[in-house]
Structures are given as structure tokens and as C-alpha cells.
Design a protein around this nucleic acid. Sequence first.
DNA 1: CAGTGGTCTAGACCACTGC
DNA 2: CAGTGGTCTAGACCACTGC
Lengths: 246, 246
Amino acid sequence: MSTPLSIKIDRSSPIPLYHQVVQGIEGAIRDGSLASGTRLENEIELAQRLRLSRPTIRKAMDDLVQSGLLVRKRGVGTQVVSSQIRRHLELSSLNDDLERAGKKPSTSLLSFEHIPAPEQIQELLSLPKDVSVYHFTRLRSAGGSPLALMENWVRDDIVELDEKSLRAHGLYELLREAGVNFRLAQQRIGATIADGAQAEALDTEAGSALVTMQRTAVDDTGRNVETGSHVYRADAYSFEMTLVQR
Amino acid sequence: MSTPLSIKIDRSSPIPLYHQVVQGIEGAIRDGSLASGTRLENEIELAQRLRLSRPTIRKAMDDLVQSGLLVRKRGVGTQVVSSQIRRHLELSSLNDDLERAGKKPSTSLLSFEHIPAPEQIQELLSLPKDVSVYHFTRLRSAGGSPLALMENWVRDDIVELDEKSLRAHGLYELLREAGVNFRLAQQRIGATIADGAQAEALDTEAGSALVTMQRTAVDDTGRNVETGSHVYRADAYSFEMTLVQR
DNA sequence: CAGTGGTCTAGACCACTGC
DNA sequence: CAGTGGTCTAGACCACTGC
């Protein structure tokens, strides 16, 4: 009732052992040797066969359950989630989402200013009184057609921004280069109707549907680094995610 | 530089020790004895003081990091996330979201049928050929005003549904009573414009903004139990979530 | 009842951070 | 350099599941 898994463990690699197990199982799922619904070996057997301890195996399993690739049931076993559900999994991590927010398609800078934080922004970013913000709007396009209108505020005590660097690089790229390690983001997604200015910028009609997104991102020192308010053409963008029961 | 935490551990309780630690820290954060940004004791010290092993403490910390209450940095320490970010945290778990999908405000049943699965649904639910589905639409209202129009398909080999039970109970309530344990949900959120029928049902105007949500939910045996397509009045509803870097 | 995941211990050694 | 979290071991005992 269970499928033996062939995973190579390299003890001289700098990649942690549990993560090698994660990659091995991910790989086996991706290449089809672990089909949807397949039951895995039990944890103790797998640990013995790979010459790893059970806690190491469990750490790997925990990660895979968290990322939505496996489901576990006490007393029964662990199995691979259906391919239907796995299809868009890769979009659900903060990292990928931040990547998309900072890179890939072309982005043009529409406005830029360096100002004292408006009250609401000061609150959203929990800013000390002497910290100002960069405020700018950008237009994201993909394949030549406009996709999103993005307005952001970034605290100025962590990174130095100017128009030139924002024209050349993604926001998250710049922040990471400045040593910011993101840990958390609080996000709200809704809908609205395009007003005249939005419609013109996004090359659509006033009254068409837009997806709205507000996000505030936190780094590993607990600072709220940036907050943004974005609108996307609803015919070109939606948010996909996988929720995991905890 | 660190705050001693007073947590009571009850070794005779059926609640796992690591979860007592989670509850203790959550409680201390909620009642303010652990303020935003506070550094916690290091893991070894905390383990010794509570007379627990370090892995047990770490399991608790892992949970709190995953739920977005704490941020950790190697070589530095663990600290409490800012209250600004924590504010809407409780909405982000699958459980709460499912709760909201099945209960609370009043819900009326608009249509109900028990039919062979349309091709697209059969695919979304990865249904065997001999399994049919329940298909129904409901209107959710809160405080007397309509909020959402919900269309769902549920496989008929897991639970028996009829109009009467759906009028009396939430969908997820019924599914849980039938022994279904949800583990995962795949979700897509976007926007659209209300058409005439939607506008009438939701007591709004044609052309107003709606938030759209499609979801497929998976139980602990790996089955795709139900899929749904919902629209919400954008002026009354938005999705909030906390993304955690992994 | 046999099989499985869930919890827990008591360490060890390492990598990274900030001074 | 001292302090911190990150990884790993080799077990033990328990609770739940399905037959």
C-alpha cells in the first residue's frame, strides 16, 4: 500500500538534510513517480531507509504539508494531494508573490516624491516621528498591455530610493539589496470600479472591474518596511492561494 | 534585553505541552505583558525555566512564527510582531474562513438539485465516473442586507444533502458532522461587474463592483469534497490574510 | 490488534549576528 | 568573541484508525 521513494541524500552538501528530503519528494511528485493520492512509506521506515532520524523526516513532512503537497492522517498515513489542487500551488508563497511585485514584466514610474509621512501611513508603518517616506506610483505592464497601477510608501531609514533606481529595478529587488529580509505581509484583497484616471492609465474603460490589493510588509527585525495600494485589471489578474488547515 | 515570560504548564492536561506554550505566549501578547517588538528569552533559557525540552519550545515557536505573531532571526533572537500587522491575523486561517463560509449570518437557499457532475465540475473535484453532485445556490446576508451569492457543488458519496438540512445548517457544519476533516483549500480571488440578476439578488445596482472567489476544498483523505464560486458585494466584503515567508 | 502519525526528551554541534 | 537560532540524533511512549 505504500510506494518506496528513491531519494539521494548527500551528507557533504550544505543543503540541510531535511531540505534534501523535501526536494526529493517534491521532485518525485513533479516527475510523476509519486502519483496523486499515493500513500508514502511510514515515517519510521523512511527514516531507516534514508539513514536519517525520524525528527528529520518529520521536519521535511511538516514542510510539505504546510506547502500543500501532502496530507497526513493520524493512524492512517501520509499521501500526495491531488494534482488538481497542486496546480497553482507555487503562487501561494510570500516569496513568489513578492517576486511578482518587484520584477518580471515592465514597470514605468509615474510619480515620485520624498515627503513626511501622512498620518495614515505613519500609522500603517508604525513609524517613529522623525522618519519620512518615499511615495511613488508605478504602472506595471505585461506583454505591452497595462496590468496594474501601484502606489507605494517606503520608510526612508532603511533604504535610499530615487527615480533612477526605481526606473531600473524592482522595489523588492532594491529592498533586498539594501539588506531587508521580508518575513510577513498583511494583505487585503477586494474589488472596485475603474474611475476615469485609472481607466486611462490601464487602457480600459471607466466602470470596468478592478481587483484591489493593499499590503504592508514586515522584515526580520519586525519593522513595517513598506505599504502599498494596488489596482489590477480584473480581466488580466486574480490572486490564487492555497490555504492549509493548521 | 529580554522579557521573562510567566507561563503555567500543566503536565496532567490533555493539551500538548507545546500548545500550552503557544497559548501562553499568545495570551501574554494579547494582554499586553509581551508588547510589540519585545525580544523573548532565548529558546534554551525558556526551555529550562519551563522545565521543557528545547524541541518542545521550538515547536511552539514554529507555530507562532507560522501564524505571524513572532519573527525570528538567527544569531539575534525572537521578537513580537507589531500590533499593526497582528490586527487582522485571526481571519487568515483556513478554519476561520471555512467557519465564515458555513455559518454566522443568515443564509437562504435559492436553488437545489442533485445531478450528474458537469464535465468541468467532474474535473475540478477529480470525481470518479459514478459519483454525482449536489448543486445549489445560496444568498448570504448580514444584518438584513445581502452580502454574497454562493454557488456550490458537493460530491454525493461523502454526505447526504437535502434542501431541508441546507436551510437549517451551514454547508461546512453539515460536512463536518458527516465526518469530513478539511485540510486544504485552493482559492482564487478576483473582481467583476454585477449583471442584472446578481444586482437584484444582492440589492445593488448592475455595474457595481463584486469580489469573486472560487474555492475547492480537500479533506484529510485527499478527496476534493466541494467546489464553489461566490460573489460578494465589494462595498461590504474583502479578503484579509497574512502571508508568512517560508 | 497492528500500523500509523503525534508528542516529548536530552542532549550535540553548527552558522550566523553584532559588538 | 558571546549569544542566538538552525539542524540533527536516537530513542520513548502515546492516541488514533481501520480491520
